[in-house]
Design a protein around this nucleic acid. Structure first.
Lengths: 189, 189
DNA sequence: ATCGCTTTTTGCCAAATGGCAAATGATTTC
DNA sequence: GAAATCATTTGCCATTTGGCAAAAAGCGAT
């Protein structure tokens, strides 16, 4: 729980009562490797915070290939905004790549936080904007680079992730085949 | 001005006084083709709204190649958030690709809007989040597609843009060379 | 340790894209 | 309207990456 609180306080201040209130609403859950936090086609009704573990957001393109949109590591919020906010079916899966410990808030509890804690929405907005900006900043530069450079950038961006997840997920995130990525790894060593 | 107001009202409500107040602070300016709205290395001190025209956000990578990160068309806000919010030098250029009519707000006026209009920050946050989500949704799928598919997706995403801007900018956005894009265009016809 | 399953590596060849330079086409300027 | 400038297309060949299938390596269960 302290990880979550520390994370929130980086974006704004809460007094002790407010922190208690947040803690009261938080539920801790475990999701095992390969299980889903939320699924395409279903409406996402939870906001999560990853205490430990790695997840990925992925979908299937029109050739049936599984594409990893991005990874979400520990100490980050995980929520399908579009689906959660508008109560519409999600278009992507959020899947645990390793066993994960999460703190989750139900939609109802999340609403209560919004209604009760003055400034909660401002904090949340800051967190969301920051996360979205990061995603853009990480994705955009990849398109214009060759496969090796993409992988090198990936290592920079996700140094704590690169050795804990299957090569095939990284390949699909980078838009290259896993055999190519395997060869790239060989060349780099 | 009515375009801007209509745009804002899609994200939240303002009463007539508030609308007047916004209009009072707004300045209309023109930026000619190839001129910059904001520049890398300089702190961005304006929020803009494009009434007419197309801009792009671009930067130079470490090989000195000019990379187009994305395009911003009419009826969208244009602001370098990172730079504007934190008053730090920007890392990218915002350049007019066609002659542009913009409505701009100085940082000082923008602050006044925030301080005066209850709910202004909520509206702005919604606008920003929506725009950032769009950027992610547009960028991510490109990485995993071949050059032709990327271009076809580009046409879908920016149908009003594709024929008004140089091919080289599109190529740099898609991460392919302009000769390749030229050949792709030929094949598609 | 062995079997079975999954992931990663490798070989071979085909297809896609890049690099460079020249030719063509389009646009602006005087 | 001719010249100059800039953008796009094309040709040629090199390089990168993909596709497919088999081999090797890693890993967990018995």
């Amino acid at each position: 729980m302290k990880e979550l609180i520390a994370y929130i306080l980086r974006f704004g201040n809460l007094n002790p009562q407010q922190i208690d209130f947040v803690a009261e609403k938080a539920k801790e859950i475990v999701i095992h490797k390969d299980e889903y936090f939320s699924e395409a086609g279903k409406t996402s009704r939870q906001v999560g915070f990853i205490v430990e573990g790695i997840t990925r957001v992925c979908y299937y393109n029109n050739k049936g290939e599984e594409i990893t949109k991005y990874f979400i590591e520990e100490n980050n919020l995980v929520v399908d905004l579009e689906s959660f906010d508008n109560e519409i079916p999600s278009t992507a899966y959020v899947q645990a790549i390793t066993d994960c410990r999460l703190i989750v808030f139900s939609k109802k509890d999340w609403q209560e936080l919004l209604n009760t804690i003055v400034g909660w929405d401002a904090i949340v907005h800051k967190i969301i904007s920051k996360a979205l900006m990061l995603k853009v900043e990480r994705r955009s530069p990849l398109v214009s680079e060759d496969a090796t450079t993409r992988y090198l950038k990936f290592i920079e961006i996700y140094p704590t992730v690169v050795n804990r997840i299957p090569l095939s997920y990284i390949a699909s995130y980078l838009g290259i085949t896993q055999s190519s990525l395997s060869r790239i790894r060989k060349n780099i060593r």
